[in-house]
Design a protein around this nucleic acid. Structure first.
Lengths: 228, 228
DNA sequence: TAGTGTGAATGGATTCACAGCC
DNA sequence: GGCTGTGAATCCATTCACACTA
């Protein structure tokens, strides 16, 4: 892979979307797809798709489009999902358990290989979702990261503990961190971080709904006024 | 509220972050904060924070900064979280159950008032996390939305069902949709949608980690070559 | 002096438009 | 004719820089 110059983050995010759509098409026995068709399905412009792909190489054929199998392979390689990643999970609470049961991870080459918690009541118990996995005490973290070559971690501990656990994960050698706690992690720049804050998402919804509402209201009064 | 002109979506997203930080400061008994201090804590520039806030009004005092309580109130009003939102959940599987147990929602004024599933084995059972909530059959959806004035919905059903449920939710009158399925929902423009695709997030991590790795490798060979 | 609010300048990302190819 | 790949043009977001204020 070429550790290329400056690739916009939004382009990388969309790569995942393209992959999804390609898999759908593939399941439908399709062979070729154009940027226009892909764009229509994902509600993006065709030129955006072409530009995004062009950051990484030339995958299409003029007049024909993209070969679905080939493009799929290429995007997988770009995203680094053409191999299996070992993933660990810290926090076997509600959220953690749900995540450990999520099928979508395995389907995409992410294999959950270890689960940790600090609560002694949970340690030693197998996961309901996957009885082969037994919750380990958090003190085993460092050893397991090394032993099983784990590069990605899902951090599903409460907000208070998140920063400390993050620090520990990084020190243990984890290179990417998926964080669910509503905190801004302070982390070395060479460690990748993805964050999902569920409450923030709901706030965005609440904002949009409020705003749509007041637009609709304004519209209504405008119309009323016109009637006069 | 003023249904103002063009507010950048990223600015609205950051509003949530400001709110979180303000709450932290407030818990620390602080009275005032400057854009510079806020920026340092959140790793943003001070001017960005001032600009973001300026989209919505004038909240600061030159030479002093922002009053924490006052700014908190204002941001809540802007985001529409100065009131309680009734929220429903569709899908009482693993993810759904975890979400229903998540405390962060209630803390921010989002009240889960109904849970639906199509699986008859689940219907009628109370939620472990909140025994007052009993899983209802999906056919009750429309009635409940009206009866309890529910405007927001969390869609935690499998990908195959997501589009159909989304459609039904919108028809029932829901104005905002929090989607966890890895699909692009086709929805009226006047309905707000927030999406979290867990696998996409992991793919972003995998990309970044791979890229960091190859940068590090390149760095290494560069150094080696120099040594000669 | 410390800090806001804001026009102007910069920097990025998206879209346009078209040459070139199948 | 249909479609890619890509410079140029446009659009949008961020940062700069400073007048103004407590």
């Amino acid at each position: 892979m070429k550790p290329d110059g400056n690739i916009p983050a939004p382009a990388v995010r969309r790569l995942s979307l393209y992959l999804r759509q390609l898999e759908l098409l593939w399941a439908d026995d399709r062979q070729k797809v154009s940027s226009k068709e892909l764009g229509a399905a994902l509600r993006l412009t065709d030129s955006q798709i072409r530009k995004d792909l062009a950051y990484f190489g030339q995958f299409g054929q003029a007049g024909v489009g993209y070969d679905i199998t080939e493009l799929t392979t290429n995007i997988r390689r770009i995203l680094g999902t053409d191999r299996t990643w070992n993933v660990l999970l810290v926090g076997a609470g509600n959220l953690g358990s749900a995540l450990s049961a999520y099928r979508g991870f395995a389907k995409r080459g992410f294999r959950l290989v270890a689960v940790f918690d600090s609560d002694k009541k949970k340690v030693g118990k197998p996961l309901l979702s996957n009885p082969e996995l037994v919750v380990q005490h958090i003190d085993m973290l460092e050893d397991e990261v090394k032993r099983r070559e784990i590069h990605l971690a899902i951090n599903a501990v409460p907000a208070e503990a998140a920063q400390q656990i993050a620090h520990r994960l990084v020190k243990a050698g984890v290179k990417g961190l998926f964080n669910f706690a509503p905190v801004n992690l302070d982390i070395d720049a060479d460690v990748a971080v993805a964050s999902v804050d569920l409450a923030v998402q709901l706030e965005q919804l609440s904002f949009q709904v409020s705003m749509n509402q007041s637009i609709a209201d304004a519209e209504k009064t405008r119309k009323k006024r016109r009637k006069k």
